[in-house]
Design a protein around this nucleic acid. Structure first.
Lengths: 201, 201
DNA sequence: TATGGATCCATA
DNA sequence: TATGGATCCATA
């Protein structure tokens, strides 16, 4: 898979200028590159509107980071009063924990994911975090209403207005490498209103 | 329906000290009081876990505010790059527009609702906003995973950390007045429970 | 019980 | 096409 955009909403303090930060970003970049579908090293999607599910997409990404020593699916609490919830991948740096969320849920979940990273930094539970989500162009071929970069971007100003002097919040938009009408559709689960769709048969 | 908690995350500037602000809050309080189910002036819910739908709940609330001169379901843009989306109710004050969202969607939607109010104030599109949502105790009897006050509250610090010197962000937790095992379940979706039964075949 | 997610809906 | 839902799922 390829990276369409990479933007830092906040990039302040010693960690953001460290070699460790560069390594973190490099590992994330490589992990994204190895996300594939229907071909060995490329993500080729069948361009059916709302036709592809999202569950298996991030598998290779997670596996790559795990091999690099990241902890995956760790349950942690990023704010007082919050019960622990799973985070896709975290890396322990000497400046603190860095968290990465590959978001394939509803667009509103992307708001929660960014909020969580913001709160985690404010509370000093993490030193930074990244949200990875599809471009709008990519998301059109996925489950309806999954998060996409263009739709969340008008809210970036909110995070840029938070008083954080030591931390990193980044957003990465990812996209398929190629279209392929012969590629199998990514299977869908039966969550949410999926059953209603099944009524058509 | 009754108010369980009322909290202001931000309450700064001239509007927050004005008589108009008091009127706005008073109208919202009265509007909440007239939300009922199964009795004329009380909200009596059948205490079945995840048993009640949410769609009709806010009807009386919206109607009350409409009668008081508020505009309802107005589509507005609260940030650059955002397409207009409907807002439950807005009141035009001499300090700017005040927006109210009665949130009955997924908890992650509550994050978006607060984010939207925050961005709207930062961009000077509105002077303030309120998020109204059920207490956890109430939400247990509603559709699974609807927003609830307790679950969003750990994120409040995020909004309190934004640099806003003129604006209001408030959150109100609402709750049923009484339990009533004879009360009809609030229908889900358009066809209520009938559709759910049909799915079994 | 609690959290994060995945899926399709209603409507302008 | 775009936005804000409404609903049920998977798993610790």
């Amino acid at each position: 898979m390829k990276i369409a955009t990479e933007l830092f909403l906040i990039k302040e303090g010693v960690f953001s200028h460290s070699a460790e930060f560069l390594i973190v970003m490099n590992e994330v970049n490589e992990a994204i590159k190895c996300v594939s579908w229907n071909e060995k090293d490329k993500f080729c999607i069948n361009p059916v509107q709302k036709g592809n599910g999202v569950v298996p997409i991030k598998n290779n990404f997670i596996k790559y980071l795990k091999d690099k020593g990241w902890k995956t699916e760790t349950r942690m609490t990023l704010a007082l009063g919050m019960n622990p919830g799973p985070i896709d991948a975290i890396k322990e740096t000497s400046f603190g924990i860095f968290a990465v969320e590959w978001e394939t849920g509803n667009i509103s979940s992307s708001h929660r994911a960014l909020n969580k990273i913001g709160v985690g930094i404010l509370q000093k539970e993490i030193i930074g975090g990244l949200l990875i989500l599809p471009t709008k162009k990519f998301s059109k071929f996925l489950t309806d209403r999954v998060g996409n970069y263009e739709e969340i971007s008008p809210y970036f100003i909110l995070y840029q207005s938070i008083n954080i002097i030591d931390g990193v919040i980044g957003v990465i938009a990812v996209e398929y490498d190629d279209l392929d009408k012969e590629a199998p559709l990514i299977p869908k689960g039966k969550d949410g209103n999926a059953k209603k769709g099944m009524l058509l048969f």
